[in-house]
Design a protein around this nucleic acid. Sequence first.
DNA 1: CGCGCGTACTGTATCGATCAAGACTTGATC
DNA 2: GATCAAGTCTTGATCGATACAGTACGCGCG
Lengths: 362, 362
Amino acid sequence: MASRKGEEQRVTLQSIADLVGVSRTTVSNAYSRPDQLNPKLRERIMRTADELGYCGPDPAARTLRSGHAGVVGVLLAERLSYAFTDPAAVSFLQGVAQVGEREGTGLLLLPPSAPDGAGPPAGAVRGAVVDGFLVYSMSSDASGVKAVVARRLPTVVVDEPRLPGASFVGIDDRAGARSVAEHLLGLGHERVAVITFRLAADGYNGPVTPERQAAATFTITRARLEGYADAVRAAGLRWEDVEIQEQTPNSVAGGMDAARVLLARNPRPTAILATSDVLAIGAMRAAREQGLTVPDDLSVSGFDDAPDATLVTPALTTVRQPLLDKGVVAGRLLLDPSPGRGAEEILLPTELAVRASTGPPS
Amino acid sequence: MASRKGEEQRVTLQSIADLVGVSRTTVSNAYSRPDQLNPKLRERIMRTADELGYCGPDPAARTLRSGHAGVVGVLLAERLSYAFTDPAAVSFLQGVAQVGEREGTGLLLLPPSAPDGAGPPAGAVRGAVVDGFLVYSMSSDASGVKAVVARRLPTVVVDEPRLPGASFVGIDDRAGARSVAEHLLGLGHERVAVITFRLAADGYNGPVTPERQAAATFTITRARLEGYADAVRAAGLRWEDVEIQEQTPNSVAGGMDAARVLLARNPRPTAILATSDVLAIGAMRAAREQGLTVPDDLSVSGFDDAPDATLVTPALTTVRQPLLDKGVVAGRLLLDPSPGRGAEEILLPTELAVRASTGPPS
DNA sequence: CGCGCGTACTGTATCGATCAAGACTTGATC
DNA sequence: GATCAAGTCTTGATCGATACAGTACGCGCG
């Protein structure tokens, strides 16, 4: 760094106080409570501070003493480099940022650990100078999540996992999934297949057995699959006959890969249920690649109603969930001291959005 | 918070030390330098810490004493809620995150102030507990930027502004812009128009006068326009005859708005140069809306080579710049103590990517 | 005059750790 | 048997501020 050696001691409150001839506390007040001292004196202090090149009270010291950081820590399951490409995560962060902007609160994105999908390591969580944590859709056995609990700071969880003492924001994933599956089955589809994002953070890609489904550590994944299963069974079909492809990462390219596997089956499924819009968009692209027309040859549904869902052609049938609101609500729960203390649990509404990517089987 | 009143004092290093019967420093070492003490003792300390529900040294105190935060502050001109929708910004953050992940460094996104485009307020910058700053494409007169300088922490600027003592990562915007303009003019276009993102943070939308162009506070915007101008003049045309539309925000919708204005002219331009890919994609969409075919009726070029550039139809002719690398390089400059100290200045290469959105005028 | 009260400022304790230097054991070496 | 080095642990100082209680003073009021 460009600290000219010895040119001058580090400028602190004390050094300014000495020069002006007042106490350290008064200088501190000049910054943090301007109403507590004479405007003229304050003016003089500020001028002296300027001359010394002082740039305000040291944030670390202030945080230590006051116990307040003005920052919330955000834990994402994915590496940040991936998270930014996931429209659901981005919308969530947008929502959080909206609240943060109002309150002047910063967002500390914790660095995920090396093994993908495990989220930030405990060390990063322990070392984070924050007032609270936002846990976004993480596996309950992630080490970072345990560290969050240990720190006993205000915490809000989005989607999963349920954490003792932490507020929760989510949706009824099972009901949402059921609704879109009912829609497809109602159109007359009998050979449906599923593309799902991961059930566990083990990097597995491929067909999902009932055992794996039952052992899923990502509960919203399981909930969505159960929703599909509810509808399938209600339609008089066997859930066990529905082929499920698990795919990581949750991306357009991933959706294409999984769809290629499913579309190679004979007989081919007439409908694909995807647990996210990006996977669904990938499935549509794979279908087109093989000369299939959506929805005539293949119906495809998504989940989320991400911004792109209405931009693709054909527009995607999906389950709309308020992605941005999730962030806003989570941010509020964390930052606004709600009157009735204690953890809250908020379920936001979902809505079936029927568009052009689904139709009756040919 | 759920601190059971009086049940126990806050757990500190000291309280553990007392219980185990060692000094505070030894407990500290148990956490930060395990090799400095007997494994058996360390084991005993850790067990006691666990029993007391201690969750590691207080990050604020540690930061104050050690002078190291493990966090870099990121300043973006746009509100975060918008920044996440800008592919260039997202790619940059991805790159930074990649480096951060390796080093275990967190990313603190500073909350922008209310007036759009001004970036984080000085207060947020002064209060940020960080080891350094990353300034991404900001106006030099933003108050947050001045505060960054005042804090005298290691700083890396991306794109703009040039800051004394700070490293710099960017591209040759002028040359890049010139290359794509030359490409279009070389195809024979004589009626070209320009869509540019903002020249100043004043929220202005509309035609750009030469005066406004000369007074631009966003220097990369000006550099790109100058690059276009170079090519136009070299082709024997008058730059003053080229209509320029300034558009905020830099988004697909914004590009559509600006293009509608330009396409309403008579005679219509046969080519549109956009200073970003999102604006260009918007222009293409507006053209299609009016029944025009790209590139037969209208050629469109972008800048950036964002991920979407190859996904749209027709694929976008653009100036490729290494968006991700910008983040990676900036992150490295900030986090890796480079041998030769002092500010570095790195210009990354650009490359003209000719695709399907440009062709000869009809 | 004495009391209460608000304004303006001071002084000391404290936040919770890390640092730098030193002291005490051991065991090995000459 | 003195010397030295390595390994382990302790002591006291310090990081840079804010919290809190208190002092000094001016002023209105009964």
